[in-house]
């Protein structure tokens, strides 16, 4: 029988190999060997997703692999869920995320939310076509560390500036970091509207968010 440490490494490798059954089996082996579920999450799932992210950045993996890796991570997390009760994972931070008003597309936002969640963030997903008022309300109620906004269309990305204006008027802008992303956006545009960062893809977005909360 492999040691707990070996099983966690195996989980990480199986996740990178996008092997659903192998990853779940490795997670079960780690549990049976007495590895605390929190360690399985951080070492196995978190470690695996880090490698997947690096492979994505190096163009070894593509969007298809990124999405499937997220699905593997989600299934393993579900398996671990009963063992995590009462042993809340320490979250890296809280992110309120949504696709801005006028835009119904949420695939990009969903991938970012999934990647952030597997990286250890708590996610409050507002969905698509989210008004500036809704963003403000949720920032006030949820007190997140970060606000993430997505837009697919050039005609809707201008709404991001509106959300930032609403946050300023509500006195909340200084209490959160704002990251934006989506096909038509650029670094320049993000800077121009007063966002703190532009994530060119999900992996870079997660890295930026981590850099804000990991001291």
């Amino acid at each position: 029988m492999p040691s707990g440490e070996d099983a966690v490494k195996d989980l990480r490798d199986k996740l990178v190999a996008l092997d659903f059954e192998g990853a779940k089996k490795a997670a079960q082996t780690a549990l049976d060997a007495g590895v605390p579920p929190q360690e399985i999450v951080t070492g196995g799932i978190g470690g695996g997703m880090d490698i997947v992210g690096k492979k994505f950045e190096a163009s070894e993996y593509f969007l298809s692999e990124l999405i499937v890796a997220g699905e593997v991570a989600k299934e393993v997390t579900q398996l671990l869920q009963p063992h995590l009760k009462g042993k809340e994972l320490k979250k890296l931070g809280k992110v309120v995320i949504g696709t801005v008003r006028g835009d119904l597309h949420d695939i990009g936002k969903n991938i970012v939310a999934m990647m952030l969640e597997t990286a250890g963030f708590e996610i409050v997903d507002l969905g698509s076509d989210v008004t500036a008022e809704k963003f403000v309300e949720e920032v006030r109620n949820q007190k997140p560390d970060i606000v993430g906004m997505s837009a697919l269309l050039t005609v809707t990305m201008t709404e991001m500036a509106n959300v930032i204006e609403h946050l300023k008027k509500s006195g909340l802008r200084d209490k959160v970091k704002v990251i934006v992303g989506g096909a038509p956006l650029t670094e320049d545009y993000a800077r121009k509207i007063g966002a703190d960062a532009f994530g060119k893809d999900a992996v870079q977005g997660v890295e930026i968010c981590k850099s804000w909360v990991v001291k």
């Binding site: 163009s59 593509f62 969007l63 298809s64 096909a183």
Partner: peptide
């Protein structure tokens, strides 16, 4: 494809 590259690998 999208702005950052193909959705899937050249092999796929």
């Amino acid at each position: 494809a999208y702005a950052n590259g193909p959705f899937f690998s050249p092999k796929s």
